[in-house]
Amino acid sequence: MSEKTELDETTTRDARASTTPPSEVKTSAPVGAGDGGSGRKEAEASLWADAWRSLRRNPWFLVSGALLVVIIAMAVVPQLFTSVSPHACDLSQNRQAPTADQWFGTDIQGCDYYSRVIHGARNSMIVGVVVSAGVFVIAVLVGLLAGYFGGWIDGLLSRTTDMVFAIPYMLGALVFLNIIEDRGPMQVALVLMLFTWPTSARLMRGSVMSVVNSEYVMAAKALGAGHVTIMRRHILPNSLGPLIGYSTVFIGIIIGAEATLTFLGVGLQQPAISWGLQLTDAQSYVTSSPHLLLFPVIFVGVTVFAFMTLGDAVRDALDPKSKR
């Protein structure tokens, strides 16, 4: 799967970037001082304030942010966008081309396609957010434990990570989902989580390892702080940056993966309303009713694009090395 390459590339890119700790900024000199913000308060020079300042100037961030607001609204309150029920269908009016009245035409059941496509946002979003949140938690746990303690704990966790990483996640998910008979968003999300966590865990382990030997951690140790305190107070805040950016990109990757798996017949099932299912139906009528294909394709594309671009912008903003 090509999305997988994005996963791989992220690890290498961040592995290279992680030679400098992502946010020593917080404990050492304010980094924002150099770029002309001389009159600003100390608090504003924190990593996050600094990131926010550079984000506001990034056109990609503004565009993808605006798109996301619309898409999230669509997933939460689809009624804002359409008053037509996605279940109000008239079989005699099936596969009609778009008109002024029905902007996206009708589907093979004669339902209003605009309403169907709008209502499709919710399932995609649930899968994307649930998987990304779950993988975030797994990655933080695995990365912290492996990177902080090292030794046999690292050995065990890293070898486990390697094993799962060896299975291309689309293949793994395809085979695993196939043995589940009733598949809702939660089942699909769990299976995707099972096969996609290694990239994030590796990323987190790398950034933990890049701060674990820094002076402030040693100082905390010397002062007698416990493992939990060191991890919570010193390591976590300074190593979370890359993972946060990546988790946003990851929502996009997962939404693409879910649509793909559903399209291949192992994701969500009828009667769920989902872009992947719409693509499956549309494929049989691609020559006679191309609009059935076009609209879900655009919606999946825009959603994935928005998440991935936003995540990239956040990741760049949180990486002090990328600043010029």
Binding site: S2, W60, G256, A257, T260, V300, G301, V304, F305, T309
Partner: peptide, 18 residues
């Protein structure tokens, strides 16, 4: 490249087909 990298293979495939 930003656009190419941020679109799923499935979407690019269908768009090219259309």
């Amino acid at each position: 490249t930003v656009i190419m990298v941020a679109l799923p293979t499935l979407v690019i495939g269908f768009l090219l087909q259309l």
